[in-house]
Design a protein around this nucleic acid. Structure first.
Lengths: 212, 212
DNA sequence: CCTTGTGAATCGTTTCACAGCC
DNA sequence: GGCTGTGAAACGATTCACAAGG
């Protein structure tokens, strides 16, 4: 398959949200123009994004909402439930472990891990915080392929190496340090300070910060 | 000034981090090649990024670490302290209110707000959670220009409208719904589910793409 | 008419390559 | 010799515009 830009995938995720809202309102079909208006893009962009993966629409009519939802779910790999482990049960890790937005979209947090004995054994929304030493065994047992890293910078690379050796193939990192991943492992990093800095750049340069 | 790409600003934020690490190790100068290696990009990219804003290097030598730190801080608007208000003191809002990565980089959380009477008055790391009704008065009094939105989707647009009317000019949004901002207000949204979906897309579509 | 799907054109970003300076 | 700064070339993403189908 051709290479797909990250921006395309991000927009597909957005379209999916609008489609689900449409489905909830019993909307039957939707045009590329309407999706574009909702998503702040152009109809040509919507059609191009979808056309990478197939022909889902009907000329003169638009896209059938339910069919397109199913198609995009399959494209994004959301047609199954993904077990996710959260590494680090500090403030951010604990918040994410209880975040409803994950479970409502095909992700299931199956484990939360920390090295601090004071935290191990505490309960978070139906999950018990476990010792970091259990990570390897649990990842194998639970067949988890996705990890969310919420540990301090100093620990991030070591833990990333450990979880990828144990079978994790995708990592969402919240530590504010750049990480190296083995080939074949997907990595995304969210750096809160960088996000704020993009805003202060916009403020000091009086530029508009576009939607992401 | 010419339009600067978001990717450029993001890289500047990254370079700044490496430069600060270099400064801590008493490193005097750094080349574009070294910055590139650290940041996973190319030396030409580093030089191009910097050249949008001026000539900071010396040919044959590289960049003086301290000077470049100062220059990038000024470019990003980090040469002053920005008061930030956090709207919504749920799990994510509370975690961010206590996040050390903000305060260590020129951001000062000056207020945390919630509408839930059970939360109002609770203390978070030296701050007292205040009533959402105080937002307008406090934003004016504290001259805050940046808000971090950590409220449920349904409330996000209403609160965004309120804070922008009160003087906020940049918003970092964690609610998973698209928002509209008035002209002249910068907005960035971080959607945790979308980040995970980009990862599941990568996992699902790893057809070709090299040996493992 | 309406709207999709898509080659072609445009626009923006990254990489190349080298002149200029330390 | 080493490294920056920068036009030019290459690459990639978005927008245009239109043929084709409901």
């Amino acid at each position: 398959m051709k290479h797909i830009a990250e921006s395309t995938v991000r927009r597909l995720s957005l379209y999916l949200r609008f489609l689900e809202e449409g489905e909830a309102r019993a909307q039957d079909t939707i045009s590329s123009g309407e999706l574009a208006r909702l998503g702040g893009t152009t109809s040509a962009q919507v059609r191009k994004d979808l056309s990478f993966f197939g022909s889902f629409g009907k000329r003169g009519l638009g896209y059938h909402v339910k069919d397109l939802i199913e198609a995009i779910r399959e494209i994004l790999g959301l047609d199954k439930t993904w077990p996710v482990v959260i590494v680090g049960a500090g403030k951010i890790g604990a918040a994410l472990a209880q975040y409803r937005g994950f479970s409502s979209r095909g992700f299931r947090v199956v484990g939360v891990y920390d090295r601090d004995p004071a935290r191990i054994g505490q309960r978070l929304d139906g999950l018990t915080i476990r010792a970091e030493s259990e990570l390897e065994r649990d990842i194998a047992k639970l067949k988890a392929q996705i990890a969310v890293l919420c540990v301090p910078s100093e620990a991030a690379q070591v833990l990333l190496d450990r979880v990828t050796k144990a079978g994790i193939r995708a990592v969402l990192n919240f530590a504010p340090s750049p990480l190296r991943v083995p080939k074949g492992v997907a990595l995304r990093s969210v750096n809160m300070a960088t996000e704020l800095e993009i805003l202060t750049f916009a403020l000091t340069n009086r530029i508009e910060g576009g939607p992401r």
